[in-house]
């Protein structure tokens, strides 16, 4: 039996109900982690139909997500019954006006906020059930962030800012700064390495932000209005840079914006209105972004370098 929440699953996926005893598919995902999201004894998973006819698990899976804020005695429903499955390498845009709940959804996907109800399974881990420490570890290993207001530390130089996620992982200074420098070079800031954020333009700061998001070779990038503070020309540069890097390395990008012009870079556009998914469509006219090897090779290089530990 399937719960009613799953009735609205995207077309590309099928459901499968398994029990703990069911011999499972052999692929990259750790099913040990799946027990977290078990409902009773049954585990319900979305699996993508592959062309070969077999199925695989989506990279991000949101089930029955609900978020209610309490403002005094009033309840505000920010998100209601969100079901979403995003596959690896997909560029997914969450589009909505302010107050539609798009930022709340992003925050919950990134583990910054706990859902009132529902599960969020990323890379096989139900992050809604992780504690603070495990969430921090999860963010270290899986996520990169690009913010509207860049959120660089003003006291640190560009290199130090980019190296910061690696510092939290405990990577030695020399190694992480080498990786950070490569990253900065890749985003075209080799002449701004020692500059502080207040010595750079908005576009340059956002490039530092992008370098920081990619430096730890994450699995998923969260971008919250990444071009909100930028002019049109810089917007295009920044969007192309992000998309290019994600495409090259098969990284999942969750792009939150109110601007339909940005949404055209995504493979898929999820339209959020008043905390509900209004439409979930494939973008038929994706803006082509040239993948340039020189720029994008860095992420993989870094990944190999840093793993040599």
């Amino acid at each position: 039996m399937l719960p009613a929440e799953f009735a609205k699953a995207p077309q590309a996926f099928v459901y499968k109900t398994v029990t703990k005893a069911t011999p499972f598919l052999k692929n990259d995902y750790s099913f040990q982690n799946m027990w977290n999201s078990s409902i009773g004894d049954d585990i319900i998973v979305y699996m993508k139909k592959l062309q070969t006819g077999s199925v695989c698990l989506p990279f991000i899976e949101v089930r029955g997500l609900r978020k209610i804020y309490r403002l005094g005695s009033e309840k505000v429903v920010a998100l209601n019954r969100i079901d979403l499955a995003i596959e690896k390498g997909e560029i997914c845009c969450i589009l909505g006006t302010s107050g539609s709940g798009k930022s709340t959804l992003l925050n919950m996907l990134a583990g910054l906020e706990k859902p009132t109800k529902g599960d969020i399974i990323i890379n096989g881990v139900n992050i809604a059930k992780l504690n603070e420490k495990k969430l921090a570890k999860f963010r270290q290993e899986n996520t990169g962030f690009v913010f509207q207001s860049y959120n660089l530390l003003t006291t640190l130089t560009a290199v130090e800012n980019v190296a910061m996620p690696l510092m939290f992982k405990g990577i030695p200074k020399q190694k992480r700064e080498k990786a950070a420098k490569k990253m900065l070079k890749a985003v075209g800031l080799e002449k701004r390495m020692k500059h502080h954020p207040n010595q750079m333009s908005g576009g340059q700061q956002q490039r530092v932000g992008i370098a920081r998001a990619f430096v730890a070779h994450p699995n998923v990038i969260f971008a919250d209005e990444p071009t909100g503070n930028l002019d049109t020309k810089t917007t295009i540069e920044v969007m192309e840079l992000m998309v290019k890097m994600c495409r090259k390395h098969d990284l999942t990008l969750i792009l939150v914006t109110h601007d339909p012009e940005i949404a055209v870079y995504a493979d898929r556009i999820v339209h959020l209105i008043d905390g509900k998914i209004d439409s979930d469509k494939k973008n038929v006219s994706v803006v082509p972004v040239p993948t340039d090897d020189e720029t994008t090779a860095v992420v993989t290089e870094n990944k190999i370098d840093l793993k040599k530990e």
Partner: peptide, 16 residues
């Protein structure tokens, strides 16, 4: 405050 927030988002352990 902002700096601490950024650090948390980027995966800094609260113990650190």
């Amino acid at each position: 405050t902002r700096e601490i927030g950024i650090m948390k988002v980027l995966g800094c352990f609260i113990s650190n």
